[in-house]
């Protein structure tokens, strides 16, 4: 974002302590009365009043749903018990059932493939494009803006467009392959290709995010480093390996981690394109949870919530790693 005002960016350069230091009074005589430094009480009340809506909001719309999710997973909620509110407490039985079910390992494997391949390719493509856009050339800002399109489109729009492009009989992808004598491939309806198809669509969706973050990371690498390396006779590839990559490491770590978090929880793309099928061939943990709760005529909220517990654990772990990375980055 553009800095709010010129003045504020000057301000930032000053040490933070100057904030609390007494300012030179612009209107002598009234400053002391207005400063209110001696009375922290009202200030504290003001802080509490301003933060209160957020605290209430977090409690009602984050903490409570999370609690309910865990509660659902510890009870046997049949649809009837759900309506009547008298489920049997079963402890970790449902969680254990999920962990030992035949569907568990394939779902973990699908989640791993979907997530790791997606973020690896998104990151690679995003970095290549960020480096490409770094050197300014005519139209570069416009093209960079257009690259945001996949990220701004509603997920259902992108996913249904991809579904039609990959349609077995009428899709453009098979038509192009056919022109080269290949295919046709049942992209969305064969067990071998369904996961590949949703990964491809998801990569397309994630490139803009990687591009934007990595591009802004590149902007913060001092130009002198490149000039010095060039004087030493380093070629473009050497500069990339010895300057760009190491300098970009903190940004890369954050990008990959956030990519991981966002990819783990993807539901829309997969659900709209394949519904996790055929069979379970493109079912990830998030899809499993969604399908169990909302995707069939017979909702099994407890099973869905148990899978949800696993997703919460992963999110929490990622959150802790994220904080650790941020801390390490903040320290010089």
């Amino acid at each position: 974002m553009a800095p709010p005002t010129q003045r504020s960016s000057e301000r930032r350069a000053e040490p933070a302590s100057s904030r609390s230091a007494p300012r030179p009074p612009s209107r002598p005589g009234r400053t002391r009365a207005g400063a209110g430094r001696g009375s922290p009480g009202p200030r504290r009340w003001a802080a509490a009043a301003f933060a209160a809506p957020l605290i209430v909001y977090l409690a009602a719309f984050y903490a409570y749903p999370l609690y309910r999710n865990i509660d659902l997973s510890l009870h046997d909620y049949t649809p009837r018990a759900f309506i009547q509110g008298d489920p049997e407490f079963v402890g970790t039985a449902i969680l254990r059932e999920v962990l030992t079910s035949d569907a568990f390992l394939p779902a973990v494997a699908n989640t791993a493939v979907f997530t790791l391949v997606s973020i690896a390719v998104q990151y690679g493509a995003g970095l290549a494009l960020a480096v490409f856009f770094r050197g300014s050339f005519p139209l570069s800002p416009v093209l960079r803006a257009l690259f945001l399109t996949p990220w701004l489109l509603p997920m259902i729009v992108s996913a249904s467009t991809w579904a039609w492009m990959l349609n077995s009989e009428n899709g453009i992808v098979n038509a192009v392959l056919g022109a080269f004598g290949l295919g046709p491939v049942d992209w969305l309806t064969s067990p071998g290709w369904a996961l590949v198809s949703v990964v491809v669509a998801n990569i397309w969706l994630g490139i803009p995010f990687n591009l934007v973050i990595l591009y802004s990371g590149l902007q913060n690498i001092p130009g002198e480093l490149y000039e010095a390396a060039q004087l030493d006779g380093a070629g473009p590839w050497q500069r990339f390996v010895h300057i760009t990559l190491p300098q970009l490491r903190p940004v890369s770590a954050v990008t990959l981690l956030l990519g991981l978090v966002y990819t783990l929880k993807v539901v829309d793309v997969i659900w709209i394109m394949t519904r996790g099928g055929p069979g379970d061939s493109s079912t990830t943990l998030a899809i499993w949870s969604y399908r169990a709760a909302f995707g069939t005529g017979r909702p099994d909220l407890s099973e869905a919530a148990a899978v949800g517990d696993l997703l919460i654990l992963m999110a929490l772990a990622a959150g802790l790693v994220y904080v650790y990375l941020r801390r390490r980055e903040a320290r010089p």
Binding site: P65, R68, N69, S289, Y290, L316
Partner: peptide, 14 residues
């Protein structure tokens, strides 16, 4: 970082 499915389930119950 909390997945949308988890939120949806909790909110649904509420």
């Amino acid at each position: 970082m909390i997945p949308g499915v988890v939120m949806a389930m909790g909110l649904y119950a509420a």
